[in-house]
Write a protein that binds this DNA or RNA. Structure first.
Length: 594
DNA sequence: TTCTACCCGC
């Protein structure tokens, strides 16, 4: 008996060694044949290992795993089910994982092979991938019935699965009900919020962590820095930077990359550069963060400079690298360079341009006034059915007051059934500037028929460690009265330097009571004026104001901000939906071209 | 065997 056992043990070991070196299906078949000829096919450990390898390893084969599972494992144990669920949860058909999980629960031997921590974790991943929220709830119920609702890993997976299904509130509920939380779990809650775009909430989790002395690690910092980047919360980001230094996390490439991105997105390119230069190890994310950072600031030359250094460092660019480059070229008007890079990405780097790259190219030509070329790009892109490209073209037509191509763009948007009030307003503005009253009234009718729905505009400004958010005509801020009083003073002083409300544009918006390019209704107070006024009142003279807003800057606010920067001698950095504007001494870095 | 991270943009 013991001889047989020793024999089997050495065979098992030999087969496991073979499996480790196995990288083709053909070899896998050979190993399986070997298992059978040695009479080991009923050896539970061997079969489980073989199954796990087939299901999970990159060089495995899920169909082969199914074959083994259904024909060679008569009484699958929990770990065998887990192999199947895990394998399919990360495969192109995660629904199958859910199906194996269902079978596991209903199989006659369910009492011998109950689901465990792993089964739940894997099936929850599958629920997340197929966006099956109801299934996620159902699994949650089973988790509770099997007494795993105190398992910190299962709970973390539950949170992620709920959040991935768009239900952050449920994720938070799971989080709140946990009796014990580890650091991973806290980090996961931060990531759930940031994934949902709830960045204030993500930062609030960090306050809780500090109150409860949870500590932090690189994951925590990266998550929080990402939220700071989205919010434009530079001061908070600098605090994180300081924490990273104190706790010794500056050596992490992830943390360094997140810091660069945070500084760049908060409008502090010098800060980004400083972190970049001190990094010992750099990867594609590092270079991309710099290139994209300079790109969205409209500094194409520097984006190109970093791209060239990236090449010299031997780092392979990816599609994001080229988005950053193209964005920089288009905002700086580097048309030829942009075209070169567009071609280079496929010819030299074998990266297929995606819809966003075509979008950049349309923007590149459109901004430069080469509207025919922009139109040609769309027609040659095999993406004529993407509304984003036509909308980009329409915006370019507005800059260059081109009625004809603007009409073509709108026609295509209508053809695609995705035209909205914002598009009609764009074309109406073009008609208005071209003094085409008929066109304006046609658009007015379309807008009336369709009804008006606009995204609410808001602006943020960080003062101290607080981010203050303003909407159009905001009355909700505790200091509202003071802000509006101060605003009058600011407008007067800006007017002394030449600021004039842009009547023409206001009238252009009036008939619709919106301008999607503005933050709100005409004659009303746009959110960035309130944020700027608040910043002027609450920060020391001479300090830079940083505003983040969700829409594009309208012409009136752009002009207002220029004069304010001059009248109050302040540098004002505005990050809009697409790019940065650096206002200083009455001028803007975009050269009034955005 | 399981859980959390950076570049795009939703």
């Amino acid at each position: 008996m013991s001889t047989i056992h020793t024999f089997q043990a050495s065979k098992t070991k030999a087969i496991l060694t073979l499996l480790q070196g196995c990288n083709t299906l053909k070899r896998l078949r050979k190993i399986h044949a070997h298992v059978i000829t040695n009479g080991l096919q009923h050896h539970p450990s061997i079969c489980s290992k073989l199954l796990n390898f087939c299901a999970v390893s990159v060089s495995g084969s899920l169909p082969y795993a199914q074959l083994l599972f259904h024909y060679h494992i008569p009484n699958p144990q929990t770990q065998d089910w887990n192999s199947m669920i895990r394998g399919f949860s990360q495969s192109p058909s995660p629904l199958q994982a859910i199906s194996y999980y269902n079978h596991m629960l209903s199989s006659s031997s369910a009492s011998d092979s109950p689901p465990d921590t792993f089964s739940f974790s894997f099936v929850l991943k599958a629920c997340e991938r197929v966006r099956a929220e109801s299934k996620c709830r159902e699994v949650h119920g089973v988790v509770v019935r099997h007494g795993y609702d105190m398992d910190v890993v299962v709970c973390t997976n539950l949170m992620k699965s709920y959040a991935g299904n768009g239900s952050v509130d449920n994720a938070r509920r799971v989080f709140d009900e946990m009796s014990e939380r580890d650091l991973v779990c806290w980090n996961s809650m931060i990531s759930c919020y940031s994934q949902a775009g709830l960045h204030h909430e993500a930062l609030n989790i960090f306050s809780l962590m500090r109150n409860q002395n949870v500590g932090l690690d690189g994951f925590t910092l990266v998550g929080l820095l990402s939220s700071c980047a989205h919010l434009g919360a530079l001061n908070t980001g600098v605090t994180m930077h300081e924490l990273a230094r104190q706790k010794g996390f500056l050596g992490s490439v992830y943390v360094g990359n997140a810091l660069i991105d945070m500084y760049a997105k908060c409008g502090d390119l010098d800060g980004a550069l400083c972190v970049f230069e001190r990094m010992r190890k750099r990867d594609a994310f590092t270079w991309n963060s710099m290139i994209v950072g300079y790109g969205v600031h409209g500094r194409g030359d520097e984006a190109i400079y970093f791209f060239e250094k990236m090449m010299m460092a031997g780092v392979q660019p990816n599609s994001i690298t080229f988005l950053g480059l193209l964005c920089g070229c288009s905002h700086q008007g580097l048309v030829e360079k942009g075209v070169d890079y567009f071609h280079m990405m496929s010819s030299k780097f074998n990266i297929k341009p995606g819809i966003k790259h075509y979008g950049c190219l349309v923007d590149l030509f459109g901004r430069a006034g080469k509207l025919e070329k922009a139109l040609h790009v769309i027609r040659a892109s095999h993406a004529q059915d993407d509304p984003v490209l036509w909308r980009t073209l329409l915006s370019s037509c507005k800059i260059h007051k081109n009625v004809e191509i603007g009409e073509v763009a709108l026609k295509n948007l209508i053809r695609l059934g995705s035209s909205n009030a914002g598009d009609y307003v764009l074309l109406a503005t073009i008609y208005f500037r071209a003094k085409d009253a008929d066109g304006v009234s046609r658009m007015r009718k379309l807008i009336k028929n369709q009804g008006v729905r606009t995204a609410p505009g808001w602006s943020w400004i960080e003062v101290g460690d607080q981010v203050h958010k303003f909407v159009v005509d905001d009355k909700s801020h505790p200091d509202t009265e003071e802000i509006y009083r101060k605003l009058e003073v600011v407008v007067q002083r800006a007017a002394l330097h030449g600021y004039l409300q842009e009547e023409s544009l206001i009238r252009a918006c009036e008939f619709t009571s919106i301008d999607t390019n503005c933050s709100g209704t005409s004659g009303s107070c746009h959110s960035e004026k309130l944020a700027i006024t608040f910043g002027l009142a609450r920060t020391p003279e001479g300090t830079c104001l940083r505003i983040v807003k969700n829409l594009r800057v309208c012409r009136d606010c752009h002009s207002f901000t220029k004069f304010v920067s001059q009248a109050f001698n302040r540098e004002i950095i505005v990050r809009d939906r697409v790019r940065f504007h650096h206002f200083k001494g009455g001028l803007c870095s975009c050269k009034d071209y955005w």
